[in-house]
Write a protein that binds this DNA or RNA. Structure first.
Length: 641
RNA sequence: GGGCCGGUAGCUCAGUCGGUAGAGCAGCAGACUUUUAAUCUGUUGGUCGAGGGUUCGAUUCCCUCCCGGCUCACCA
């Protein structure tokens, strides 16, 4: 149904816009006046991929989108106006929003609206400040950021702008609010991540009109500035009538008061509802970060967690190392791997499932306290708690036992909670009713043996703990699925985790694991059937796994051999026999204990995120448009015409 | 992989018991010199995820497929 007739009644502006866009689509230059003659109505009816300036944007996949076509035309207009430079890089901000705001927040005098005068400048006798208004001398301030809202009100415009200090502004505003209330002023909304540009047309009429008003005869006759653009402005810091600290844009030395530094040719999502679609949020994380402040906050906290972990361990004499991510044999954990291939050597490689065996080689070598924070890769299902690649901290400490590490982990987590959340009490997850759980991360944490948990939560009598048939029968009663290949120890652990995890909301060390499920852990001196190992559960999920290390090379060799037996019986998650690791142990590894902590999960806990994908910037997703479907190809859009 | 729910304008969402769709925001235009989700007025914009079937007619009903969310199972 080409040429739909219902468009015939569009008004003069729409006709002009259609003509404008049609001209662009035909490759005609976008400058010049709108044609007065009735244009051919085709631009908006069948908009081809638009390529306004092939030299600048060839190769960019552009969509059939009138909004983008307009903005590309604005880019062209900007280029015309700036001697060919549409994306300048000569603007140097002098202040961030936080710096500028901090500058005036502490002084009660400045809490009231005032007139700003440029430092060193003579009083403008033609425009003297109103009688009684306080006058403050401001330095010339240059600030930049992304425009999140434009509010043009007659001959004055307000821009909400966000810069890298967005996360600090609520804190500054809160402090300012306290001072305001103390001086009898009304409170203001604190949770505002943006700062404000104030632009009065009187201060730079040309720039004002070009950016915010339609201008007949200009290369693009509409306003050039849109929400999403990255702008730089200069002027004086002051406080508006309503008490909002703002940059009062004023031109100087012939420079425009406000410049578009980067034109956003793709529009941002709805300024109020923001970006809600979960898929788009994760795939286009850059938009998510622009629109959603809580997302920025999560990753700020993640950075703080990593910094805090490093500081904690560095202060205790640990050395940070990096060990290979590509392994020739599987070890250090029970998991299925990703496989890859080295072409020149023509050999298979695995992405590592754990760094453990390399780190303990370093302990053999005399790095008695060592840690690594890096990615592990496990070829298993995805879930709220699992991403194929995840960040793991592992640290090893000679002359220490797993109970020593319990103390160390308690101290680490409590300290991180204080640094990141300001409290050892955090709120995380939701119970059935939807209320967040309060989790107390102050030491000491509860400690519970596997055997105790089985008795308490699965109702197994003490006599039945060692009887695989009893355990399997109880598991079946409880509806807990247990793998048919599982041996006694594995049945114990699986049943325990199934029944106990709901009870492990507050931090709890679970310990005394069966030896057969822990081929790298040291046997308990009194009971050789269990190993000196713990897992730390918080919020019902496993955060950490640690044990006293097995340093008896003969025992280690036999445990590897047992793993191979298990594999022969069908267990897919067994370790390879790492003969070089045994050789290392033969040289002698000091008694030691080691610990792994899932950083992603720890960040979830400390940031309140319920899904691991919320705390990973780019979580694994299927490739966009995988398997059929009509997706824009990655090839350059054909030039129109 | 199984189950449940979903895909409608650039964004957030309504709606159509089968007769080719609406709102708010964004855009365009008008008014407005201290707003802050500004307001008021007018207006543009849609292959209703893709393909096939039934039908005079499908965005709606049926089938298949694609994509996503939640969830179960393995795993940290």
């Amino acid at each position: 149904m080409p040429g739909s007739p219902r468009r015939a009644d569009r008004g003069p502006h729409q006709r002009a816009l259609a003509a404008k866009l049609a001209a662009l689509a035909d490759g005609a230059p976008p400058w010049g006046r709108w044609p007065s003659a009735a244009p051919a109505r085709r631009g908006l009816d069948r908009m081809p991929p638009i390529d306004i300036d092939p030299a600048a944007i060839t190769g960019t996949p552009l969509e059939r989108n009138a909004l983008m076509a307009q903005r590309l035309a604005k880019v062209h207009a900007l280029r015309q106006a700036a001697a060919g430079v549409a994306y300048p890089n000569d603007f140097a901000p002098s202040h961030t929003a936080a710096q500028a705001m901090h500058w005036f927040s502490s002084d009660p005098v400045h809490l009231h609206p005032f007139v700003a005068l440029e430092q060193g400048a003579p009083m403008d006798l033609e425009r003297p400040p109103p009688a009684g208004a306080p006058v403050v001398f401001s330095p010339r301030v240059h600030m930049a950021g992304r425009v999140l809202a434009i509010n043009v009100k007659g001959k004055v415009a307000f821009l909400r702008v966000i810069d890298r200090t967005a996360a600090e502004l609520p804190g500054l505003r809160a402090a300012e609010n306290r001072a305001r209330v103390a001086t009898g002023l009304p409170e203001r909304d604190v949770q505002v991540p943006t700062f404000q540009f104030y632009f009065s047309r009187d201060d730079d009429p040309d720039t004002f009109d070009r950016l915010f008003k339609p201008t007949e005869g200009a290369p693009w006759e509409g306003p050039l500035c849109d929400v999403g653009d990255i702008v730089g402005g200069e002027g004086l810091w002051f406080r508006t009538r309503t008490g909002e600290q703002s940059l009062w844009l004023k031109s100087a030395a012939g420079r425009p008061a406000l410049r578009i530094l980067t034109k956003a040719v793709r529009p941002l999502p709805d300024k109020f509802h923001g970006l809600a679609d979960k898929e788009t949020r994760l795939r286009q994380r850059y938009v998510d970060l622009v629109m959603n402040q809580d997302v920025r906050e999560i990753f700020r906290k993640r950075s703080m967690v990593l910094r805090g972990v490093r500081r904690f361990l560095d202060d205790r004499g640990y050395v940070e190392v990096e060990t290979p991510m590509m392994h020739t044999s599987l070890g250090g954990a029970a998991a299925r791997p990703f496989r890859t291939h080295h072409n020149a050597l023509d050999m298979p490689l695995y992405l590592r499932i754990a760094p453990e065996l390399h780190l303990k080689r370093l302990v053999v070598g005399g790095i008695e306290r060592v840690y690594e924070i890096n990615r592990n890769f496990r070829n298993e299902g995805l879930s709220q708690r699992h991403n194929p690649e995840f960040t793991m901290l592992e640290f090893y400490r000679a002359y220490a036992t797993y109970t020593d590490l319990m103390d160390e982990v308690e101290a680490l987590i409590a300290e991180l909670a204080l640094q990141v959340c300001g409290s050892t009490t955090v709120h995380w997850g939701s119970e059935a009713g939807g209320t967040p759980r309060e989790i107390r991360l102050a030491a000491p944490f509860a400690r519970v043996r596997i055997a105790d948990g089985l008795q308490r939560w699965a109702g197994i009598a003490e006599a039945g703990l060692g009887d695989e048939r009893v355990l399997r029968a109880r598991a079946a009663e409880l509806g807990v699925h247990i793998d048919g290949h599982a041996t006694l120890g594995k049945v114990q652990v699986e049943l325990f985790e199934a029944v106990a995890e709901p009870h492990l909301v507050q931090p709890t060390f679970v310990y005394e694991y069966p030896a057969e499920t822990s081929p790298l852990a040291r046997r308990n001196d009194r009971d050789g059937g269990v190993v000196d190992r713990f897992e730390l559960f918080i919020g019902g999920i496993e955060i950490s796994n640690a044990f006293s290390e097995l340093n008896d090379p003969v025992d280690q060799y036999q445990r590897f051999a047992h793993q191979l037996d298990q594999r022969a019986k069908g267990d897919e998650e067994t370790m390879d026999l790492d003969i070089d690791y045994v050789r290392a142990l033969e040289y002698g590894m000091p008694p030691a204990a080691g610990c792994g902590i899932g950083i992603d999960r720890l960040v979830m806990l400390l940031s309140g995120a319920e899904s691991i994908r919320e705390v990973i910037l780019f979580p694994h997703m299927r490739p966009e448009g995988a398997g059929g479907g009509e997706r824009p190809s990655a090839e350059p859009a054909p030039v129109a015409g």
